[in-house]
Each structure stands twice: as C-alpha cells, then as structure tokens.
Simulated scan of single mutants.
Amino acid sequence: MSEFAILGAGIVGVTTALALQEGGHEVIIIDRRQPGREASYGNAGIVQVEVMEPYAFPRGALDVLRLALGLGNDVRYQLAALPSAALPLALYYLNSAPIRYRTISQIYRQLIGRCAADHDKLIAGAGAEHLFVRRGYIQMHREARELDTDAAQAERYRKDFGVQSRILTNQALRGEEPCLKRDFAGAVHWQQSRSCVDPGGLVATYAALFRRRGGTLLEEEVRSLTQPASGWHVHLRNGRRLATENIVIALGAWSPSLLRPLGVSMPMIRKRGYHRHYKADRLPGRPLFDVAAAALYCPMSQGLRLTTG
C-alpha cells in the first residue's frame, strides 16, 4: 500500500507529488498518458507572479450582457453546455461579490506569493533553467481606455504588493518587440513573471526529478475509486486495483466525474483552450497578450505558439 496516490500527471499533480516527497512521504503518480501531455502541454507557459487577485466574474449588467451576447472575443460558449454549468457560474458570480472576493483574494495571494520561489527550487533541482525566459510578459491594449484601467491596476499592485511593472507607449512597445506588425494604444509590462518555452517538457523534467528521488509513475487509466474500511482502492482500466492511504485528485476537467459516484460534488466550469504553432522569422522576446483579441503570442521551442487568452 502506498502512502499517497496522485491521480494526474500534469503540472499540479507532479509538483504536488514532489512536495509530498520532500516531506518524506511515499508517492505514486497515476495517469493515462506520459507527464505533461494533456492540458499542461498547450498553455501559455507563464508563471504569473503578478496576479495578486483571481479573475472575478463581471458584476456590471452591461458587462454580463456583452459576454452573454458574445460581443467580445474573450468568451465563446455553447447553449447546450449552460445547464450543467449553471451552478458553477452562479457560485462564481456570488464569490466575485466585493466582500467575498476580498477574503478569497487574501488567501489566493498566499499561494501566488510563493509560486516563484517554489518553482525556482524545482527548476534548480530538475536542471530546467534552459526552459525559462525571465523577461516578464506584456499585456497589449488596442484601446486607450482599457490601457488606463490596466495601468491603474498595475499602480495599485505596486503600492499594495510591491509588484514590478512599467507602462509602455506604442513606440516603446514596438521597440521592445520588433516582431509586431501593428500599433497598439500601449501596454503593461509585468516584469517579475517568467515564461517557459516548453510547458509539457517542463512537466516531464519535473517528473524525471520525481523519479530520481524514488517516486513511481504508472501509465494507466483510472476507472473508479472505492473507499474500504481504511484508505482507498484505485481501480484501473486493466483490471488492477491499487491500495493507498491517501488520494490526491489532480485530473482537471475529469475530476468531477470521478468523484460523483462517491457523492462528492465539485462545481467546475470546463474551459477549452486551443493552440497552434507557427514558423516565424522573428519570435517575440516574451509572451505577448493581445487583450482585445483574447490571444497570446508565445515564443516556444516549437516556434510561435498562438493560444487562447
């Protein structure tokens, strides 16, 4: 019987396993694919140390109406998916109310405040420095009004939390990133964030560190969980059953369906992200977020990654 079984070999599962391992626990990771080959593969690769508050649900009636009618490029949804998302959306809206949002943000900051140091420790241990660019990331705005809003938030973050940023004019932005082919009203350069040029490769590198430290990785699909008198049984697709004292479920969008038979409800809004890679004569020096287009342009080892923002 293992002490901990981690279900899911994405960035959350693997780093959780490393943390438990560092605490002296025996850990096994179980996933149907190799580490970092699902959702952790295709993201923007940004360690966003500047995000001191979670993204809140819009509270203004006009903002909600704009989203519902699809007038912007930030949200696309299917009507058929709304019934199953109704409860999570309602909770998201309620938890974004000012009083609850302030409480949640205070807890959230405790996690964000240590993510850079925690990553740096793992980067050093795994020998993964070559996968990182430490030049921050840039949010580009096409409208002056949106730039002013973002700049005001950046100033508040600087005063309240010591987050480093700078405001770029269009000329300064084009000077920083000569690959750009169009003008913007300006941008906010979040200076402390760092980015990974191969997110899936980073997870694989962390998983290799986990193995070197004595951890076990099992490539199998989990079908169900049962809870006997003590501990847990993990039932695999091949018919095997593994016993473990503790379970950590890090399966992302697949977590609720695994927990539902146990009577555990996990309200979750499933978001689908997309990415494509392109050849480019000149890559940006760091991730660039085109806010109006809701698109991120990221320099990756595979070329220019265009991904949903």
Rank of each mutant, 00 (worst) to 15 (best):
Y92R: 06
D31F: 02
G45M: 08
H189T: 02
G285L: 00
T15H: 02
F132D: 03
W232K: 12
G13E: 09
G175W: 04
K159H: 13
A185S: 10
L89H: 04
A154L: 05
Y274R: 10
R114D: 10
A185G: 03
E53V: 15
E245A: 15
G231W: 12
T244G: 01
E155C: 11
A280M: 05
T15S: 15
G252Q: 12
S165K: 03
V234D: 07
P98T: 04
S224Y: 07
D31P: 03
Q192T: 13
Q139M: 12
L65H: 10
P228A: 11
G239Y: 06
E155T: 15
D160K: 14
G8N: 10
G201A: 01
S165Y: 05
R158Y: 01
L262Q: 02
V14K: 09
L131T: 12
T205F: 00
R276Y: 00
Q171D: 15
Y77D: 06
E129V: 14
S265V: 11
Y108F: 14
P199T: 05
A68N: 06
A85T: 14
A39N: 12
T103Q: 08
I249T: 13
P199D: 04
G252N: 12
E155R: 15
Y157A: 07
G24K: 01
A19V: 07
G10V: 14
R76S: 13
L122C: 07
P299C: 03
L7P: 04
S255I: 02
F210W: 03
Q34K: 13
L180K: 08
R158E: 06
G231L: 11
R32S: 09
L259R: 02
Q48K: 13
E219H: 13
R158L: 11
R286V: 01
V264C: 00
G162T: 10
E155V: 15
F57D: 04
I247W: 01
V197E: 02
D281N: 12
R142M: 07
L173S: 01
L168V: 11
M1L: 11
F57M: 14
E38S: 09
